[in-house]
Design a protein around this nucleic acid. Structure first.
Lengths: 219, 219, 219, 219
DNA sequence: CAGTAACCGAGACGGTACGTCTAGTCTTACC
DNA sequence: GGTAAGACTAGACGTACCGTCTCGGTTACTG
């Protein structure tokens, strides 16, 4: 289901795993958890989100109803709706990051930012993303999860491109990588947080990259 | 807060105002709403927030208890806790924006970003700001309010500096102002959303401004 | 207003009177209480009762609104709506009791019970009576009031007739007067409590009196 | 209570029953309602009533607290506290009616009235009975329920005795049964309504029956 | 092939908070 | 000082979810 994990029993995100140690290798006893049920729940979340509505209107009870599932079945898999949301976001977010390293650093940067822009222009994804981001801001304990699963991969891809640019002499080496990354990603985030979905024109990635690369000071 | 409104009776944020038109000028009848009660409620919110906790742990009932006030008194003034939060944020957020226009464009930009950084390093303000931002992301109806009261003034100050820079020939004139603003503000927002409060070193504003001004491309 | 009381200032039922002794005789200071207001309140109660509804739907706030009066004006006169209800009942209940003593004891008894039946067949009065009775059953402190003002006069009239009957040898003297009264009044009360308003045919008083007088044992 | 019904799932008084028709006979799904919880609620009501207090001081919230139960659990079973009161009354009121038909009509009548008197002299029962009666007087929709469950059985027992008396020639046959019943029951009701609990001496049933049977007219 | 252990839908359970309503008091300006 | 208006504290109302807990019933593996 998720990435390269092979065992059927692996809980979606590592939550709620068995006592750990009881059965070192053997298949757990009893009826195995239904893969179909899991899908139904995640799809139920997405379906409810399409109807719009705030985060507090997305109730566990409603999700259970929408998925035709008992509440306990949800709580058996996730500790709460916040964690469930993270997994729901993951089901939409499994497109591979664009290839980089083949062309110029500039093109790679544009491609990466364009990839993020794509998320933003999709109604369903942007809605969910916004909800999850909102949720994460209130729950420090989810922040790490969120960062590791959704932010880190993108930042890492960005970082690799930037490192390549520095090594090749295309980029200055007196700016720390963290800030460098923020400069490129910031404008996209800004528009997301402020509901400015419309403000994502096709040429935005190019304009961001060029402005950051060249600087905004008049030569 | 409340800008230049003069009348005593003006409700905090324009919510819940009287039918409008009934009594064009005269003082409304009945016992006037207590200014003290209003303060007590807002202070109650701030006190509860210092104790930490997520947004859902900040209940209207708790606020009423903390402020020594009936629930109805809160609902008489605000339609819900989200709107109340906006006003609570405003009570912390009434420092005047820094003066600009006296020195170089670069100095003005640094001053503006430093002003935002100050908010971030204050525990109480940053906590509240994060909660409100989170809330706003889920409630499109509050988004406008939030933008007009907290975002717009800062953006306008920023815009004026940028316009001055363009007019004086210090800044390029081929980048739209919106994007220009995002470039400077983005890194601050990024760190706020991701709980990276620690990542706000004193020299950050300078580094942001210099990087954006000069570009990150190796000369 | 009420019976033979002359002074304007006398509160309706003696509640809420001034400190008593402060100003032994002189006209009290300030604006005198408005007679009209008092009437408006009582009529408001009656109007609301016509609309039907339970006792808990008869709110002080609603009465004030219906009477075009402030709540404080009501509380200045009555300690609560229960007491107010008693006075409202009194405004309907001021017809003089029928004359007795002129004819036979049987005729007097029929006349008294017919008088009670009249109350029952009037929608408005019976509704109010039922509400008040209900209220009284829950408030022992009003029980005395209720008894003195509404029950006692009727029972006294009944008692006088019965005493006359005993003295004249028409009635047995081995039954205590209390029980004697209950025998005549019981059937009317029974139908009131059980909402059997329809079961008050015109000849009911006669039938009650004859049955009780003659006994129900077959001769 | 609940008569001869055997099934465990029967809701107390038929309120809140399932859609009726969905599952004609099978056991309803989900966790069954706890019998113990039901008892706890009813006992909570009785406990609160012993403390005295008016009907409005008997709140659903208080009952829930007293029974150690959530409010929803109460509302799941009863539509409101009025209906709950009826069931609470029923738990006290399940003594079988006295046997009749074995002896003289007079003895049967005395026995029936003595049965009612017993209710009245018990503090707890009379308190509850008074509250329920009061409540019923204000809520016509409960009147039928109340009548069917508490009044009708007693009236029917009384009616049977009276019919036997008429058939055997002991009682006059020219008085309608309804009035006949009221004559015997009226005095008891009267004392109940007027808080005259003390006025229920042991020989009252006998005196009532004899007076009604023989008539009060001097022979 | 019966036993057993965990799964499943359903929904009851004790709580908590919601947003509304009313009680009874208090505070204005006006009369 | 009476009056209408309406804000005030307090707390019950009935509803909606939370996260947990039974129920009867359903798989899969195991002995």
């Amino acid at each position: 289901m998720k990435g390269g994990t092979v065992t059927v029993r692996d809980t979606p995100t590592g939550w709620n795993s068995e006592p750990a140690g009881a059965e070192p290798r053997g298949r757990p006893r009893g009826r195995p958890r239904s893969e179909a049920v899991e899908q139904a729940i995640l799809e139920g979340v997405l379906r409810l989100l399409e109807g719009g509505g705030t985060l507090s209107s997305l109730t566990v009870e409603g999700i259970a109803k929408a998925a035709g599932v008992g509440k306990a079945t949800i709580y058996r898999r996730w500790p709460g709706k916040e964690a469930l949301l993270l997994d729901a976001l993951a089901t939409l977010d499994n497109d591979p990051l664009p290839e980089t390293g083949s062309g110029s650093v500039r093109d790679d940067l544009v491609r990466l930012i364009e990839f993020v822009r794509q998320r933003g222009v999709s109604k369903r994804e942007s809605e969910l993303l916004r909800l999850v981001t909102s949720e994460v801001m209130c729950h420090p304990d989810l922040s790490q999860q969120y960062h590791d699963r959704f932010i880190a991969p993108r930042r890492e891809a960005l970082r690799q491109v930037l490192v390549r640019g520095i090594d090749s002499g295309e980029l200055r080496d007196d700016i720390d990588l963290e800030l460098l990354g923020d400069l490129f990603a910031g404008p996209m985030l800004m528009r997301t947080v402020l509901h400015q979905w419309a403000a994502l024109p096709e040429d935005l990635p190019e304009r961001i990259v060029d402005a950051v690369l060249d600087g905004v000071r008049k030569k």
